[in-house]
Design a binder for these strands. Structure first.
Length: 304
DNA sequence: TGCAGTGTTGCTTC
DNA sequence: CGAAGCAACACTGC
């Protein structure tokens, strides 16, 4: 569930929590017996090589590109972490319990995190602290970017950053024109056009704009597009302001939950009343482009 | 008890 | 070729 605000919060906090730390070891139980190539790290050989390549390296900074966390190293290489559905990164002092075969935070780690049992990957630092990745469903990905080719392969298809100053309405409009026949929900979630919008923030942006998720992209007037453009930025910034959305698994690196889930107007509010004081509609749930979508059946208009 | 629902991405199928 | 559907995984809730 980590979308732009969650990944942004993670990267920002990590940048202060692990900057200048030096890698001293790794651990992983990445194995997943069914589906080759979809493990947290590719395979045992890759894991060993990955470890060799980061040992002794210092973290120079942490930032993000789209929904990817990027941990930059003194060697010039970058560790890419994609949290996918249930992943989150935590920092603290962790110990491995040999008897139970699990990692747990000690008094200096995020003790309250209920997801300690799902720790799949551990980066150890020379000062005794750890960066750990908890990921219940094991969809997450960790890989090392060592060349321009690696960067192109992993990040080359990503669209523009919607919160950058140079992401203007003109560019947004051109992006929408690339998917004229798609539902607007599917369009704004396409990471190849612009990055960062997932299921939660798309639903929230469409509620603010008063448009039905099944509205056809080409049918949206320039006026509506301008409002949608503004509202996508609004919800992403709100998400960052509230430290991300911890409705499900997401936690910040210090183990604390974000608070955006308290601000939902539609997401996961099926059957409840519309939050617009002038509207007495009810929130419905439908499937759009294979994804669940929540909207008000009264004030969000279908444009097609 | 069993199955729909949870969401990101990329591969397969039509 | 584009669109649709499914698979990866694990757990919750009805």
């Amino acid at each position: 569930m980590p979308e732009l605000p969650e990944v942004h919060t993670t990267a920002t906090q990590l940048n202060s929590l692990i900057k200048n730390k030096v890698f001293s070891g790794t651990w992983s139980n990445y194995s997943s017996p069914h589906y080759k190539g979809k493990k947290i790290v590719k395979d045992d050989k890759y894991f060993k090589e990955f470890t060799k390549n980061i040992l002794g390296e210092k973290v120079t900074s942490v930032d993000r590109r789209g929904k990817n966390v990027l941990i930059n190293l003194s060697s010039g290489n970058t560790i890419l972490v994609h949290l996918k559905m249930t992943g989150h990164l935590l920092v603290g002092k962790y110990n491995f319990n040999k008897k139970e075969g699990v990692w747990a935070a000690n008094e200096e780690g995020p003790l309250q995190d209920p997801f300690n049992q799902y720790i799949r990957f551990v980066f150890m630092f020379s000062d005794g602290t750890c960066l750990v990745m908890s990921d219940m469903r094991k969809f997450g990905k960790i890989t090392l970017l060592q060349s321009e080719e690696d960067i192109r392969r992993e990040l080359g298809e990503l669209g523009d950053e919607p919160l950058e100053k140079d992401f203007t309405f003109k560019i947004f409009n051109e992006k929408l024109n690339l998917k004229p026949n798609w539902s607007i929900k599917k369009t704004i979630m396409d990471q190849g056009l612009f990055v960062g919008v997932g299921n939660i923030y798309s639903d929230e942006a469409m509620w603010l704009t008063k448009i039905h998720p099944n509205s056809i992209t080409s049918s949206l007037s320039p006026e509506i597009r301008k409002i949608l453009f503004k509202n996508i930025k609004v919800v992403l910034k709100k998400g960052i302001e509230f430290g991300g959305d911890s409705m499900q698994d997401y936690r910040r690196p210090d183990g604390t939950p974000g608070k955006f889930q308290m601000r939902h107007n539609v997401y996961q509010r099926k059957g409840e009343g519309c939050k617009d004081v002038k509207c007495n509609g009810v929130i419905e749930r439908i499937v759009v482009g294979g994804r669940s979508s929540h909207f008000c059946n009264k004030c969000q208009k279908l444009i097609s």
